[in-house]
């Protein structure tokens, strides 16, 4: 019974995603007649962007699901452990050293290296003396490393000229501009692997939310599971940040919204969140590049603007349902 129900949910969400993507192909900064659109460079560019939107939306949502379960904290999002600030520091360093213009790969690569080094640092700090990572320690280490990286970032920015500073800030605001298929495949591979891993190990997430001791009693190798999810969530986040900068709100809101709509079982939550997050980001990007066309507005602004009220609506509806 539960299984058939799952397929209905996945089917519906896939239909939404397909509709959003299709609408997105025809929406853009410039209006092109259909006959011309199909064999112009514009359609390839839009398809690449939609693909990046799907991948980034899915990746951020899955990372959000993982961190909320792993840290047993409803406020957790993909950036809570400091991956974002490390990536930002890497990207800002590349911009300020003049490396960013060397090729399409330098900025994402610098961001990914920054993010990964932060993960390692947080992990080392979060490790407890008796072995294994403590959830609270991990969270604190993440917050502290995050503010440390943030202050280093501010230091770099204060050394820079105002134009360089603008470039850093705009990079931080996030966008889905993509120019290189190779970069798209790299992010897609990472996110796909992370999503599949999280979906296969979703029972572990269910058990972790019960608390570590009950989970261990139910036969979970708690320490190994925690480390695996920590790594999967962090790497997926680092990859999306490297490709599109910081896009807030998606990773926090989508897991909660899906939980409100389809219940808290992670075996369903992981894939449903991936699909819902992908749709949200594709729609948000279509909005970001059309509302003030040909100018673009930062996609993070749109996700907060569209996602916030929608989430409040879900929250109110559920409260009424309970009351």
């Amino acid at each position: 019974m539960r299984r058939t129900n799952d397929w209905v949910i996945y089917g519906a969400l896939t239909a939404v995603l397909a509709a959003a993507s299709l609408a997105s192909v025809f929406a853009g900064a410039v209006h092109v007649p259909l006959s011309e659109l199909l064999d112009s460079g514009i359609v390839r560019l839009r398809l690449a962007r939609i693909a990046l939107g799907i991948v980034a939306g899915a990746g951020l949502s899955v990372a959000g699901v993982i961190f909320q379960a792993l840290l047993r904290n409803p406020l957790a999002d993909p950036y809570v452990l400091g991956v974002s600030s490390g990536s930002a520091l890497g990207a800002a360093g590349a911009i300020l050293l003049g490396l960013a213009a060397l090729g399409p790969w330098t900025l994402p690569a610098a961001a990914f290296v920054g993010g990964t080094l932060t993960i390692v640092l947080v992990y080392l700090l979060g490790r407890q003396t008796e072995g294994g990572v403590g959830v609270q320690t991990l969270l604190l280490a993440g917050v502290i490393v995050s503010s440390l990286m943030g202050s280093l970032l501010m230091f770099l920015v204060s050394l820079s000229s105002s134009q360089e500073m603008h470039n850093v800030i705009w990079w931080l605001l996030g966008n889905l501009q993509i120019f290189d298929w190779g970069l798209l495949w790299a992010v897609t591979g990472t996110v796909l692997a992370g999503t599949v891993a999280a979906a296969l190990l979703a029972r572990g997430l269910n058990l972790l939310t019960l608390g570590e001791e009950p989970a261990a009693h139910l036969g979970l190798t708690v320490e190994r599971t925690k480390v695996v999810f920590f790594l999967v969530g962090s790497l997926v986040t680092a990859a999306t940040v490297a490709a599109c900068g910081l896009i807030g709100f998606v990773g926090l809101i989508v897991p909660h919204a899906v939980r409100l709509a389809c219940g808290p079982d992670h075996r369903r939550l992981v894939l449903a969140s991936a699909l819902a997050g992908a749709s949200l980001l594709v729609l948000a990007d279509a909005f970001a590049r059309t509302v003030l066309a040909p100018l673009e507005i930062p996609i993070g602004v749109v996700t907060a603007f569209l996602g916030g009220p929608f989430f409040l609506f879900l929250l109110r509806r559920r409260r009424r349902g309970l009351g």
Partner: peptide, 17 residues
């Protein structure tokens, strides 16, 4: 604004350009 601009190859390799 920074020291070096994108290369000609990078421009030609941009999707759709």
């Amino acid at each position: 604004m920074s020291r070096s601009s994108a290369s000609t190859e990078e421009l030609a390799g941009r999707i759709g350009w």
